[in-house]
Amino acid sequence: MKKHIGNLLGGLALVAGLATSNAALADFSTTEVQLHYGDNYKMGSNANFATGFAEETQRETITLDHFSTNDIGDLFFFVDFFHDSNASQVPGRPESDQYGEIYYHLHGSNFGLAFNEGSLVKGLDLGVGLNQGTDVSIALAGPRVSFNVPGFRVLSLGAYAYNNFVDPFDRSLDTTYQITLVWDAPFSIGSQKFLAKGFVDFIGSQGANVANEVVLSPQIRWDLGNAMGMKADKVHLGIEYTHFDNKFGISGVDEDSASIFVGFKF
């Protein structure tokens, strides 16, 4: 466990360094803190192998996320600090834990991969990523295509090699793929501003008895700051739904969780 905590702290130190350096040079930079309260999470502190991980838990989560971009590339990361609330914690499983992901994409324009303004394809970039928790480490690398589609601030599709090199179940896992679709689409109803954003990951099988995974996590946000006469796009009230098919590659462990949250951008 100390080894995995050390890996996490090292990863977070890397995140902090990249965030500081990239933000200093950024053409655009935004950081947000989200406070979530949700239910129906599986594989939490009450999860029991004997029952097929059927247990669900309530969860409070503090999420820190950051995005910045400049002419060279763009950086995105988030870190979740969460606490489970249930009546039947399994001995040895922590009630509180953390998990984070970081991706850096080098813009293809550095290599002459430029596209005409107004074309469907906005950019072709090359990215690397690290997903890190106290008992899981995943490295990713691959290309990402960004699209120009009316109504979307962000619409991208990435295809990554996916290497799960630290596994919470100590399984021997094969390298596989992850396909990731990301979207961010603001819209208005009358004077009220809203935002639809989210992602879906398709993760391939990592070997015998390790199932394909699908993680779908859309959000709908209401711009609370704008509604209260303050600056727009600074305070959001939202709902997040997550469907996790075959969670952590365990066939039949399907999660359908939801949370309400408030987000503060800086």
Score class of each variant (00 low, 15 high):
residue 73 G to V: 07
residue 97 D to P: 07
residue 90 V to A: 15
residue 144 R to L: 04
residue 125 D to V: 03
residue 183 W to A: 09
residue 196 A to P: 00
residue 134 T to N: 14
residue 108 G to N: 06
residue 156 S to A: 11
residue 95 E to N: 05
residue 196 A to K: 01
residue 209 N to H: 14
residue 198 G to R: 09
residue 134 T to G: 10
residue 118 G to Q: 09
residue 97 D to L: 09
residue 112 G to Q: 00
residue 183 W to M: 10
residue 130 L to G: 07
residue 112 G to N: 01
residue 76 F to Y: 15
residue 95 E to V: 04
residue 184 D to G: 05
residue 198 G to V: 13
residue 179 I to Q: 05
residue 212 N to Q: 05
residue 141 A to E: 00
residue 206 Q to F: 01
residue 97 D to S: 15
residue 190 G to H: 08
residue 162 Y to M: 05
residue 128 V to Q: 03
residue 150 P to W: 07
residue 176 T to Q: 06
residue 104 Y to V: 03
residue 77 F to A: 02
residue 170 D to M: 07
residue 98 Q to M: 14
residue 98 Q to N: 14
residue 109 S to M: 03
residue 175 T to D: 13
residue 142 G to F: 11
residue 97 D to C: 05
residue 208 A to W: 01
residue 171 R to K: 12
residue 158 G to Q: 07
residue 74 D to K: 03
residue 158 G to R: 04
residue 82 F to S: 00
residue 158 G to E: 03
residue 146 S to M: 01
residue 85 S to K: 12
residue 204 G to L: 10
residue 186 P to C: 14
residue 84 D to N: 14
residue 155 L to F: 11
residue 214 V to M: 14
residue 92 G to M: 12
residue 170 D to N: 15
residue 199 F to G: 06
residue 82 F to K: 00
residue 108 G to F: 02
residue 136 V to R: 14
residue 106 L to F: 11
residue 171 R to P: 07
residue 88 S to H: 12
residue 102 I to N: 01
residue 193 K to G: 10
residue 204 G to D: 12
residue 153 R to G: 10
residue 198 G to H: 11
residue 90 V to Q: 12
residue 78 F to H: 12
residue 147 F to M: 06
residue 159 A to H: 10
residue 166 V to G: 07
residue 148 N to H: 08
residue 101 E to F: 09
residue 78 F to T: 06
residue 206 Q to C: 02
residue 154 V to I: 12
residue 75 L to E: 00
residue 195 L to M: 14
residue 180 T to M: 03
residue 152 F to L: 07
residue 186 P to T: 13
residue 76 F to M: 03
